[in-house]
Design a protein around this nucleic acid. Structure first.
Lengths: 192, 192
DNA sequence: CTCACATCATAACAGTTGTTATGTTATTCA
DNA sequence: TGAATAACATAACAACTGTTATGATGTGAG
C-alpha cells in the first residue's frame, strides 16, 4: 500500500468522523482513533488540520464531478443534462453522506473568507460545465433560444443544492422518484 | 430595559459573532466581548451555550416567517405566493446575514441528531404554510389540478434553500432581479 | 551489515473551551 | 432603612484543542 493510498485512508477516516460527530468535533485525535492508530499518522500525512479537511472535501467534490462526466459520455440531448443533474443528487441512502460532508463544510465556511472563495471556485467549475451543456442544447434547438444560459446554469445549481439540503434534513420527504420529478419538471420548462 | 430585551441583546451579539467568525468560533468569551461586557452576562441570561445558540437561530427563523405572513396579508392569488417566497430570499445585502446564520447552523447540525430533528420541525412548519397556500390556489383553479401539493411545497422550499446558499457563496451571481426571475419562472410553471 | 528514511507512537506544549462558584454592585420592595 | 434579589464581574476548573518535538520501529538500498 503506497503513500497516496494511506493518505486517502486517513482522509476517509476523517470523512466518517465528520458524518458521525460533525465537522467541529472532528479533532486530530478523533480521526486517529477512527483510523485505529495514533495522531502521529495524521500529522505525518497532512501538514495541517486544514489541509486534511480540505483534502477530504475535495474527494467528495471530485467523485461527484466524475459521476457527472461519466453520465455525459453515455447519454445525449436533454436526457444527458437530466442524467448529469441526477448524478449529483442523493438518490440513494449512501449518497446522503457525501451531502452531509458538503453541508457541514458549507456551514463551517461561514466567517472564513478563504473557504468561501474556494467554494466560489467549485461553483464556477460546475457552472461552466452546465453552461457548456446548455449551450449545446441551445445550439441544437432542444431548449428555448431566449434563455440566459448563465442564469439557467445557476438555476440548476440551486435546484441541486436545494434538493441536497432538503434530503439531509428530511430524507423521508424526498424519495428518488420525487427528486427525479423535480429535476424533470425544471428541465422540461426549458425545452423549446 | 427589561429582561427579555437584554436577553435579545445577548443573542444579537452572538448573532454578529457567528456571521463574522463562524459558529464554531463563537465562544462565550467572544460573545461577551462583542457585547462589551463579561461572560457573567451571557451565563446569566442563558443556561447553556446550546440554549443561546438555539435562541439566536430561532430569532432568524421567526423573523422570516413573520415577513412571509406579512406578505400573505397584503396580497392575493398567485402574486401572494410569489411575494411570500420573495420574503424569504436574500434580495438585499442585509438579508444575507440571516442566511449566513442559517447555513452556519445547518452545517453545525450535521452529526447532531437533536439539531437535525429541530430543523425537521422548522421545515414541517414552512411546508405546512406553503401547502395551505397552494391548496387555496388549487381550489380557486389558479394552479393545475394534477399537482401533488406536498411535493410542490417541498419544491418551493428547495428553491428558496438553493437560492439562499447560492447567494451566500456567490453573491454576484444572484441579483435581486435574477432571484425574482427564478421564483417567477418556477411558479409560472404551476399555473393552470 | 549499515545507513537513511519512511512510518508511526508518545508526550508535552500553550492556548482555548464551557461551566461553575464566588464575589460585588445596583435596584426593588416592604 | 433594611433586606432580598437581579445584574453583572472575576476567577478558577478540568477537559479539550492543534501543533511540535522526540523516540521507536521497520524497510529498503548501497
Amino acid at each position: 500500500m503506497g503513500y497516496d493510498d494511506r493518505r486517502l485512508e486517513v482522509a476517509q477516516a476523517a470523512w466518517r468522523v465528520i458524518i458521525r460527530e460533525g465537522l467541529d468535533r472532528t479533532s486530530m485525535r478523533a480521526i486517529a482513533q477512527e483510523l485505529g492508530s495514533s495522531t502521529g499518522v495524521v500529522t505525518h500525512y497532512f501538514r495541517d488540520k486544514e489541509e486534511l479537511i480540505l483534502f477530504a472535501l475535495e474527494q467528495v467534490v471530485e467523485s461527484t464531478l466524475e459521476a457527472m462526466r461519466a453520465c455525459a459520455k453515455r447519454q445525449q440531448g436533454i436526457e444527458r443534462l437530466e442524467q448529469m443533474i441526477a448524478a449529483a443528487l442523493p438518490l440513494e441512502d449512501s449518497d446522503r453522506d457525501d451531502w452531509k460532508v458538503w453541508i457541514a463544510f458549507l456551514g463551517y465556511s461561514i466567517g472564513r473568507d478563504r473557504l468561501i472563495q474556494q467554494h466560489q471556485k467549485r461553483y464556477d467549475r460546475i457552472r461552466q460545465i452546465l453552461y457548456q451543456e446548455l449551450a449545446n442544447l441551445q445550439a441544437t434547438k432542444l431548449i428555448r433560444a431566449d434563455l440566459d444560459l448563465t442564469l439557467e446554469a445557476n438555476a440548476l445549481i440551486t435546484l441541486v443544492d436545494g434538493i441536497g439540503t432538503g434530503v439531509v434534513i428530511c430524507p423521508e420527504q424526498f424519495s428518488a422518484e420525487q427528486q427525479r420529478y423535480l429535476v424533470h419538471q425544471h428541465i422540461h420548462a426549458l425545452q423549446a
